[in-house]
Design a protein around this nucleic acid. Sequence first.
DNA 1: GATCCCCATTGGAACGATCAAGTCCGGCGG
DNA 2: CCGCCGGACTTGATCGTTCCAATGGGGATC
Lengths: 343, 343
Amino acid sequence: MTRMPGRAPTVPPTLADVAERAGVSRQTVSNAVNNPELLRADTLVRVQEAIEELGYSPNRAARNLRTRSSHLIGLRMSPVQEFTANAAADRFVHSLVDTSREAGYHVLLFSGDPTDPESGYDGLLRSTAVDAFVVTDTYLGNPQAAWLRERRAPFVAFGRPWDDPAATHPWVDVDGAAGAELATQHLLDKGHTRIAWIGWRKDSFIGEDRRSGWSRALKERGLPTTGLASRVEDTVNSGREASAVLLDEARPTGFVCASDTLAMGVMHTLAERGMHAGEDVAVVGFDDSQTAQVMHPGLTSVRQPLEDVAIEVVNALEGLLAHPRRILPGKLLVPTLAVRRSS
Amino acid sequence: MTRMPGRAPTVPPTLADVAERAGVSRQTVSNAVNNPELLRADTLVRVQEAIEELGYSPNRAARNLRTRSSHLIGLRMSPVQEFTANAAADRFVHSLVDTSREAGYHVLLFSGDPTDPESGYDGLLRSTAVDAFVVTDTYLGNPQAAWLRERRAPFVAFGRPWDDPAATHPWVDVDGAAGAELATQHLLDKGHTRIAWIGWRKDSFIGEDRRSGWSRALKERGLPTTGLASRVEDTVNSGREASAVLLDEARPTGFVCASDTLAMGVMHTLAERGMHAGEDVAVVGFDDSQTAQVMHPGLTSVRQPLEDVAIEVVNALEGLLAHPRRILPGKLLVPTLAVRRSS
DNA sequence: GATCCCCATTGGAACGATCAAGTCCGGCGG
DNA sequence: CCGCCGGACTTGATCGTTCCAATGGGGATC
């Protein structure tokens, strides 16, 4: 198996090359890389020197072929980029990549029709291109999660299985109710008593979850909620219109919103009426988007602990791949509040 | 090579399984997948049916091993997320993933120290984990590009080789000067004659490029630029301070900024002085971030054609991998202006 | 001194695809 | 009738790693 002397310098060295140089067998080099504790100390040193000198790194393809795993995690990029999801998604992906790296995994991005047998989940899995998936958009009873669950595909969801609380796949989520309660509490502490809610359509599980935090906080203090809530689409304009109506009809002094997008709509309304956020009316958003951070005068917002979510996701992933049968419990994390001048 | 009858249902079928079922050899199945034109029509149909029935997809690892290519493109996530880069990066990554998919490639994300021999560029390349890289942050004479160039690693840069115009690697970039000129022209058309520039430090190649577009537009009409330009850090606060000084000392009626971040700073100043963007003073940003789109009253901004950049990058990548020796020319794309109410 | 055991190390055989040569066969020109 | 050609398909080797079973040598045990 010795190399021809005149081989092109671009061909990377193999296990056999290292073995020859170190005067050991291939398998010993393999062990030096994967199970160093099996080698005698001096042999290990010798092999490591040979590896260093030749600049060897194990060929991924060959390793993947033999071990039937790719050490890649598939992440689907959601096709539509909602404004709110955007900043959050980016922060999450970053954290996921970092955490995965520490666990010895890389992240593979893909897009397109998720059920396409060629390029979708199924194709990637059957061709052993990825070991597992991370599923992120679980907005309303995510069909992808159900599909993966059915095929017993290894995956971890960022988001609860709203449509099927008995689902046994691992998931990680952020407690939206706790976040909204935190936001509402914050306004209560500032002395507000009439606090409005602007959220999403009733069929949004996440929206209703967050809303429940708002109403819980108010009811705990015996404060009214009726007439103070509005359910609309997740657009700036919807937020603008909803807040205008609420201001006219219910005269709230504070707004808690299901997203920064909606909160931006409230800001528009205030600006149009010559009112000042943080002085005349308090506003709190959700997701702590970049916009919340840079806008004037700064938007208070519920911040999801995405770094921790990524850590838990990778944890679950490792558990899942190590013990495919074991059923892992879901994990719920608590968000924090980034307070700025809008409140 | 026939499978044992009682094999676990989780083991995916192989070429040999398909071959047996279709009554042909492995190689013929391989050809059916990769070079269908080599088969007789009826054989092709027979093989395709077998593939369909067994739900076969080629094992990526085996293919990668044999062909010495992974059909993966490495993309490094820049560790610091500047605000401006954020939205743009996200949009670019999306486009890149979509375009790559059409070309038969997937995108592999990685992070960490780029020169780490384990997990950095070198490691990924030597282990044949990726076929090539896309390098994005070329802000000031990117050391990564130089490093890759040196090692003759296949890569395409999004961003010109500012530090070495004679560099021969393929690159794609957006003409920042043209963008700033477009923005300035737009304000000139609106009747403004005193138009200020807020940009980055002088050692930023990109910043100086954009600035040159502003000054070119003004000089063409014989309008003054002296005293109307400011060079600061890329933060909201710097933009706020710079615009305050400029307003006091030079009395401009319009601002063109090197980034949306700086433009946000201008908006803050205007708000603090009770002035209204788009009425009292016009403001134009750069990058068309999400914030520019949702803020009140909407920020006019130069929009980079990132979808086209991704297409050109993938084009270059394909050319590069098909003909490693050929030197591909750089490609410069022209941005557009997203006009909103701030101007 | 023979036996047993354990540890470090070895060599052959996969993993599942593609590459590079074959082989087979019908047709066609001389 | 022979030889040659080219299309359609097959066969063996190979990519570089890890799995598996086996080997040899050096104590410790009896």
